[in-house]
């Protein structure tokens, strides 16, 4: 916790740009996707943007990992808090992805298609299609 004076975290522009790019690419993928599993993949890309952003925020130049097992306390280290956040979010993301894929399997069973453009809740397909 050696870096916690407010406003002192060094933020370089690169991680920001990468995060914004990843998020935008993921969004584009979701919007144009024609397959639910592909869409779930795009969602994961969006999520990776948040990981990059968070790790970028906690990065300290020329500092080691926040493990003080063989370093004396006080050695410069990157911020462990954001790493904990990323770890938590990976777990949450895994749960959401699993749930979405399970839903996708059930949709495929019931509808025979996984094209998001064909899936409209409460708007049944014309009778001939069933």
């Amino acid at each position: 916790m050696s870096t916690l004076s407010p406003g002192a975290l060094p933020i370089s522009a690169l991680p920001w740009l990468v995060a914004a790019w990843l998020f935008a690419v993921g969004l584009y993928g979701i919007v144009t996707s024609r397959h639910c599993v592909h869409l779930v993949g795009c969602l994961t890309v969006c999520q990776s943007a948040t990981y990059v952003l968070l790790l970028g925020l906690g990065y300290v130049r020329e500092a080691g990992p926040p493990v003080f097992y063989d370093h004396p306390p006080g050695t410069p280290a990157v911020d462990p808090v954001v790493q904990a956040l990323v770890l938590t979010d990976i777990v949450v993301g895994a749960a959401v992805t699993a749930l979405l894929l399970a839903i996708a399997i059930q949709v495929q069973r019931r509808r025979g298609t996984l094209d998001p453009q064909a899936l409209r809740p409460l708007r049944p397909p014309p009778p001939s299609a069933e």
Partner: peptide, 13 residues
Amino acid sequence: LEGAFTFTVTNAL
């Protein structure tokens, strides 16, 4: 299922 899919994607974002 379809409503849940939309719900999950938007709220996960």
